[in-house]
């Protein structure tokens, strides 16, 4: 088979994708649909996924009721923002305390057993350090959210106001960018808090499993799976470990 044959096969696939694109974009305006279909013929591996695949929902706000409510009532949103921020900080402190206790008792439970190679004092200290780093980050994010000019509610109100007033598209786009950035900050803080709570739950479960293993004389089936889950959660919190076969 020659390059020409390959190009012909590629082109056939491109035409097929182009037809699919044309059908999918039928309602979006004839000009846009046609240009998109034309571009699909030579570039279907690069362009077709953007047209044919369903976008994931990451673009939508994680907590729609909070955002939509705050858009119209900045004062209420500010008050609401105060309580969740404080609640988040209390939650993080509570999670940290639970994690420290669970780590300490887990290390004691495996001392002198083969499982100490999987869950050593060094490992516990590493987990503790990562958790501390996350808590610091949450505190910083919390402080930022209370700073003037970084209130998502106010930014949402600003976008709505500019849209109502018919401001230039460039201005609205800038305000929207600001709002999205503040939402992302808020999301980061909430995500970290949830992750810490889940990690605390897991470590407490691991502690229980390890205690069972110590006094029953053999590890239970779920121990390895919990340890794996702990590491997976830590990766999600931003830890970077070099693993491998």
């Amino acid at each position: 088979m020659t390059l020409t044959d390959l190009a012909v096969l590629y082109g056939i696939a491109g035409v097929a994708c182009s037809i699919a694109v044309l059908r999918k974009e039928h309602g979006s305006g004839s000009g846009t649909a046609i240009w998109s279909a034309i571009a699909t013929v030579p570039l279907w591996p690069l362009w077709a996924p953007f047209v044919l695949a369903t976008p994931r929902t990451r673009e939508r706000p994680r907590h729609p009721p909070r955002e939509s409510a705050s858009a119209g009532h900045p004062a209420e949103a500010s008050d609401r923002a105060q309580s969740p921020r404080s609640a988040t900080t209390r939650s993080a402190d509570g999670a940290r305390a639970r994690i420290e206790v669970a780590l300490d008792e887990s290390v004691k439970a495996v001392a002198g057993t083969p499982m100490s190679q999987v869950f050593s004092r060094q490992v516990a200290q590493r987990i503790s350090a990562e958790v501390a780093a996350v808590a610091v980050r949450m505190e910083e994010l919390g402080s930022l959210a209370s700073s003037p000019g970084l209130d998502p509610a106010a930014s949402a109100a600003r976008v709505a106001e500019l849209s109502r007033a018919g401001a230039p598209e460039r201005t609205i786009a800038t305000a929207r960018l600001q709002h999205e950035s503040l939402l992302r900050l808020e999301k980061l803080r909430a995500t970290d808090g949830e992750a810490l709570d889940e990690l605390a739950d897991l470590l407490e479960a691991l502690r229980a499993q390890l205690l069972v293993a110590r006094y029953a004389g053999s590890p239970s089936d779920g121990t390895g799976a919990i340890v794996s889950e702990v590491w997976a959660r830590l990766e999600g919190l931003g830890a970077a470990f070099e693993g491998g076969a």
């Binding site: 590493r126 897991l202 799976a225 470990f241």
Partner: peptide
């Protein structure tokens, strides 16, 4: 963040009894 290389348990099946993750 980086760490010195250390043995890491393999990622296998998640903990069966864990609370389902929130939609996020």
């Amino acid at each position: 963040m980086t760490a010195e290389p250390m043995t890491m348990p393999a990622l296998s099946a998640p903990f069966p009894g864990a609370v389902p993750e929130p939609v996020d």
